[in-house]
Each structure stands twice: as structure tokens, then as C-alpha cells.
Design a protein around this nucleic acid. Sequence first.
DNA 1: ATGGTCGCGAGGCGA
Length: 270
Amino acid sequence: MAVKIATWNVNSLRARADRVDAFLQRSDVDVLAIQETKCKDDNFPWELFENKGYEVAHFGLNQWNGVAIASRVGMEDVQRTFVDQPTFGKGGKNPTQEARAIGATCGGIRVWSLYVPNGRSLDDEHMPYKLLWLSALKGHAATLLEKEPEAQVALMGDWNIAPFDDDVWDIEYFRTNLMTHVSEPEREAFHAFEEAGFTDLARAYTPGPGVYTYWDYTQLRFPKKEGMRIDFVLGSPALAARATGAMIDREERKGKGASDHAPVIVELAD
DNA sequence: ATGGTCGCGAGGCGA
């Protein structure tokens, strides 16, 4: 069965409920990986998905982070946090597992909805956390393929990394201002997934330059076309072999009440 | 105009 899978950082599911509803309606996706739900189970809009025939699994601990998977092709073996997922506590105090990863098997695909730590600044303690988090995730993903080389795995989410210079509107601006998302350690952490056998399933169908998935709310970044490509669907070899198309729903970034991220959709053949 | 925008939740943090 041909399926469509998508990832979208909604920046609050409650604030974006109507937009998510409309997106499901028009996109016809079978699986949606959501990031930044910004809620707990108590105030998660379950009916939004159930009314449309989707099963949904959520992992949210507080008003920050929060990840979910909605699927109408099955939802098995839900897993909250991956093996050896690092913890974080500001100033090293009270380190806790954050709600940044949820996995489930949907239609034979091991789907992970991922919200990679931001890093905040190059010299912030959040940056080593980000790098360690990615290293541990890569370890988990590589283990999946060692156990089952033909496994269909989709690592989908907000990676908070722009892997190539063309993935930001002006690399010199980022370099000059010592900005995150483009540093070599971050890029190496991303490319390690490719070395482990994973492929960016959307890029071949959405070539740059000037193609982005995120635009900052400030400084008129969207109308000025100053964005970043930081949301990705990385597929294992068996999944990559099924990819037939992809699109970035840039229209979703327009208008009042938009998330700062656009959905990334990947089409898979039988 | 040395900021400019969001969301959460009720002041400041996170992005």
C-alpha cells in the first residue's frame, strides 16, 4: 500500500488545532509525526485525530517540547524516549528525560517523532547536550539496522541542524554571528546518520537553494524568504527504496496563526 | 525605534 508520511513542528498543538485539522484534511497523510505539542496528556486534543480516523500516541511532560505520532495505518509498540537518551538539567541540576522522542510502528514502518535539542548558542551547555543526544540517537538507529538490515525506519522531526550551506538564506550571516545549527560538530552529528545508512528522503524531490522548512517569526523572515531547512525525514535503506516523492508545504507558513515550521511530506510506494 | 514575534501562563523562559 502506498502511504504518505509527514513531519511537522506545530509549535503548540492547542494553538494550531484548526490548522492541523485542515492539514490532515487536505494532505491526506497516513502518518504524521508532530513536534512541540507543548502540552501534557491532560489537555491534548485527542478528538482532533480520532474524529478523522487516526490513532494517536503522545509524549508530553509539561509546557515544553512534547512529541506525538498520528497514524491511520496502525500504531504498535509505542516507545517514549529511545535507548540511552541523554538527560538535561540547567546548571547540571535535576537532570531529567525530556519529551523529545516517541516511536511507534505504523504500517510496518518504525516511525520516530523527534525534537532535537536546540543548542541555544555555541558555548551553552545545551550544545554538548544536543550533540550527545544526537550521538545516542544514532547509536539507537544503527542498532535497529544491525538487528534487521531490511528494517523500514523513519527518523522524522525537527533536527535543529542545517546540514549544508544552502540550507540557510545566508551562511555568512550565520558564520559572522557565531550562530548555531550550522557548526561543524552539529553537521557531523547529522551526517553520522547518513554514514549509518540513512538518507534524507525529501531533498531529492525538493532541491535548493532557497528551499526551507522554517522561518523565524521575527524580522519578517518569511516574506523576505529568509528560512532554514532543519526538518527532515531520514529513511533507512529499505524505506529509502520506497520513496517516490516529497514536498514541503510552504503554504502552511502563510497567514495568521501559522507555526514557524512547515510540514515535510514524503510519499512511499508499495 | 539598538527592537522587531510567538506560546505558555501569569513573570520569564524557550525558540
